[in-house]
């Protein structure tokens, strides 16, 4: 369809089951090119699975996924990240035994950051790639960790690891960012910091965020999607979601 070029993400009749459990049940949605969305839903609703399907970590059972009009339903993870897709993880999945700098370095894998002149990548020290090193400095500065670049990530605090996680997502300058509970397990001050950070980074990017803290989520966008048992049960503005009978049933609101 010609209109899909204008949309950032299009999911059409996406299905995924694990054994007999339908994790994602016929989900379709469209994210416009300048839109962001918040994904909410009870535990086990399939939010993270949906992310895994979009990024390609888990293969689809059936359905179609488009990013900027390109059919990526069966594409490799590499191709999807080259198209400008990046994500963070609910549980920090970092390279703990490596420095902050090296973590960001590994995140810079999309074609844009591959040095063109370097004919012997096996023989040149990795710090010699000026293009990437400048970007690493920039990224670490933007997430507020420029003075910790030589520290092993495993030795950083949980909040700082979250910052690295975010840094790795923004490093290749993606167009679409999938944030999986970016503030899980953080203190109030840390939440405020990450909140500000995401708002700063979110400029001109499509973001889908899984977040239980609605106040924060509404800072980014007022486009909410509710997922339950693998189905989209409601979509729209906060007011319409609050008024939705099914959502009230799921969240047992009085």
């Amino acid at each position: 369809m010609h209109t899909e070029k204008e949309h950032a993400i299009v999911l059409r009749n996406v299905n995924k089951s694990f054994g007999g459990v339908k994790a994602i049940d016929n989900v379709s949605f469209i994210l416009g090119h300048d839109k962001s969305a918040v994904l909410i839903g009870p535990n086990g609703a399939g939010k993270t699975t949906l992310f895994n399907l979009i990024t390609g970590e888990v293969p689809l059972d059936s359905g179609e996924i488009y990013i900027f009009g390109v059919d990526i339903s069966n594409s490799s993870v590499q191709k999807r990240s080259d198209l400008g897709l990046a994500r963070t993880y609910q549980i920090c999945n970092l390279f703990n035994g490596m420095t902050a700098e090296e973590n960001i370095y590994l995140a810079l894998n999309s074609n844009e950051w591959k040095s063109k002149r370097n004919k012997f990548p096996f023989l040149t020290p990795w710090q010699k790639n000026k293009n990437k090193m400048d970007r690493i400095k920039e990224v670490l500065k933007s997430v507020g960790l420029e003075d910790k670049k030589h520290i092993l990530v495993g030795n950083l605090s949980h909040g700082e690891q979250r910052q690295i996680e975010l840094g790795m997502a923004i490093a290749p300058d993606p167009k679409i960012m999938l944030l999986d509970e970016p503030m899980a397990g953080l203190s109030l001050t840390e939440r405020k910091f990450i909140n500000k950070l995401i708002l700063k980074l979110a400029v001109k990017k499509n973001i889908i965020v899984i977040e239980h803290d609605i106040d924060f989520a509404l800072n980014i966008t007022d486009n909410i999607m509710v997922l339950d048992h693998g189905k989209v049960i409601a979509e729209g503005s906060p007011e319409s979601i609050k008024g939705n009978v099914e959502v009230q049933k799921v969240y047992k609101m009085e």
Partner: peptide, 9 residues
């Protein structure tokens, strides 16, 4: 983290 490396492409 091999899983993260795969995700990074």
């Amino acid at each position: 983290s091999e899983s993260r490396m795969i995700m990074l492409g």
